[in-house]
Design a protein around this nucleic acid. Sequence first.
DNA 1: AATGAATGAGCTTTCATTCAT
DNA 2: CATGAATGAAAGCTCATTCAT
Lengths: 212, 212, 212, 212
Amino acid sequence: MTKRLPEDPAKKARMLTAAIQLFAEQGYEPTHVDQIAQQAAVSKGLVFKYFTNKEQLYLAALTAANQQFMTVIDRTVWQNSADLSAMIINATRYKIQLQLQFPAEFNLLMTAFVHQQQLPASSQAYVQKMFVANHDLTSELMTPVVALLQFKPGATAADLLEVIGYITNGYIHKIQRYLAAHPEITKIEQMEPLIQDLATKLKLVESGFIQG
Amino acid sequence: MTKRLPEDPAKKARMLTAAIQLFAEQGYEPTHVDQIAQQAAVSKGLVFKYFTNKEQLYLAALTAANQQFMTVIDRTVWQNSADLSAMIINATRYKIQLQLQFPAEFNLLMTAFVHQQQLPASSQAYVQKMFVANHDLTSELMTPVVALLQFKPGATAADLLEVIGYITNGYIHKIQRYLAAHPEITKIEQMEPLIQDLATKLKLVESGFIQG
Amino acid sequence: MTKRLPEDPAKKARMLTAAIQLFAEQGYEPTHVDQIAQQAAVSKGLVFKYFTNKEQLYLAALTAANQQFMTVIDRTVWQNSADLSAMIINATRYKIQLQLQFPAEFNLLMTAFVHQQQLPASSQAYVQKMFVANHDLTSELMTPVVALLQFKPGATAADLLEVIGYITNGYIHKIQRYLAAHPEITKIEQMEPLIQDLATKLKLVESGFIQG
Amino acid sequence: MTKRLPEDPAKKARMLTAAIQLFAEQGYEPTHVDQIAQQAAVSKGLVFKYFTNKEQLYLAALTAANQQFMTVIDRTVWQNSADLSAMIINATRYKIQLQLQFPAEFNLLMTAFVHQQQLPASSQAYVQKMFVANHDLTSELMTPVVALLQFKPGATAADLLEVIGYITNGYIHKIQRYLAAHPEITKIEQMEPLIQDLATKLKLVESGFIQG
DNA sequence: AATGAATGAGCTTTCATTCAT
DNA sequence: CATGAATGAAAGCTCATTCAT
């Protein structure tokens, strides 16, 4: 009944899952196609049949991880927030959720940027494009909320977005390291203190740290 | 009187310089010991005699790059600053200077963090330690200046330092990308606009972006 | 009445045709069973079902090509010739005709001899036998005509046959190269100059090149 | 004392000898670089260091075999012959000598022509050129002797050269097969009957097989 | 009977490491 | 001490062959 398809989606998924995990854990070069095949419980040959070569497999893993987030992503998290702080907190909480849910995908995307230099130029462009698109999406989602703010003279929405970008980016890395060091954490609630800490800091960035 | 060292310091230095440059440019795996030996104008055998294996060589290059900055570093840049903004600007200007002066060392240290995962656990710890030490140094240098500030209730020096850390870190990456894209830039003056932009942003972080 | 054969003759024929063509064009190793199956519009599995393995397929292709000529061959071409020259010309013209009609089969047989060494000893013997049989047939066909000649003292029919064999063999290769280089040639008439040239040469061999 | 050279001529020679022998015996594809390395008593890696890749190794083997004959070749064999028959016999005797002395080189060159189709186009051109050069040399050597002959009307030197070419070529193959089947033959004298047979045939070609 | 997805042995090639000189 | 020729384990990839469907 289950006709064998030219590409078995279950197998392809297993390969991608294995690729995502191993590339994320070990990086591009130290990960061997053999390993991925073994972890996916398929033969080496099949990996090459489905993905042509190691580089394409890496790119496919990256795309799959990205797609994963793109399909899962809940824009309302950004859109239904009362103010900037609430939005960032929602977004961060959401990102942590994703990180808990899809840790390998998350890690792969986080490290992909630096592995670029090890890929052929053509693939680098592809990775680059993906990251730009992601960044654009985030900006697009945040823009309407920031637009409502009353900025001090000399301050602009763009400035604030850039600064917030640096902070959240740094914070996401912090959280990632934290989660890597505490594998027992499985629920978003356990991360609430960190989230609140970020909230406080962002609030202070909005209103200023310094008296007077 | 001085015991003749079995190691030729000039050759060792050349090896490290070559290693720093090539590891920085290409990453760990794609850099071959052959290349390093050739660029250092020594034999491959000598590289292994001095550094045991490729991994140790990488670690030595990292340490050397770090040392380079540690020796060169001018603490007065941090200490002789009137206020926080001035200090950060001075520090950033100084970092850009270093980046222009020692681009390979700078890039190596910037990418080292992500190459960690490709090293054996023992080496990872070493790299980790180096980064922590660096971070601690920066904090130590900044602490006295931040201590003078009058913080709003709920805000702490540690909070501000952390936030500033994220921002400067993000900004350093931005500058690095900028410099990589504009190799014609050789003087710190040409980077002044970016530095001023960072200053503005940090000022706004101190006092707040939002009206009221 | 006629037992239903488990083998579909049409499919088998397609496989053999494809095998003949591809083996002739590319040689044994560079030709993949995949290609043959695809060109024959059957599945790879069927190829193995019908021919056991690649080597047997090659042998079958060879046999089929040989059979092709054996069935088609018109003995009257040899038998109804007035004299030796006429016979050789008739035979050569006939061979060119076959070459134009069945180029793949022709090329396969021409190259088979040298591909022998790449086959297991048992198959080599088979190929060898086929070539000997072919040679014997040619001799057999020529013998009655040569028997009528009046040989000089010291000359024998066998000598002449052998010499003619070398010449026609060399000439067939020449023609094959010529046809490969001129794919626009499709009619025997276009080859007439070469045939006449061969005739002249054979005539000279019979009567001698040298004055006196 | 024996300084290790960047290319050890003894090793290189061993590799080439092994390559020549194995490529000659087995053909291009069925010969594995592993085998050649083993037979040459060097590591696989060294073969690639010296010859870049398998194809280059094949070409090097071919060139070496060709060179072997070119350096060894004794033109006087052709030049100091009283008449055509004597020349051909001398040349053939000489070729058999070479074949006995360098059987692998001889076989490699004999089979190279047909292995062409298995090589990349660029290498095909190289092989082609080598064969043309060889053919040209033979023609050049024979021309002066043939020029002295008195040809019958309708016969030309070129015709005779071509015919002789076919015959000697066919005969060389015959001899090669004979030697392959009789490995106990090591001296040229043992081949004398075949040589005399060829002489007889060529004489008959000159003067004609047929009475009147 | 027919398919073609799946397998894995085996190939070429690379490069960290060794060691004779 | 210094060299770089030599090594061979291990990588990516191919393709004849198998076998579940």
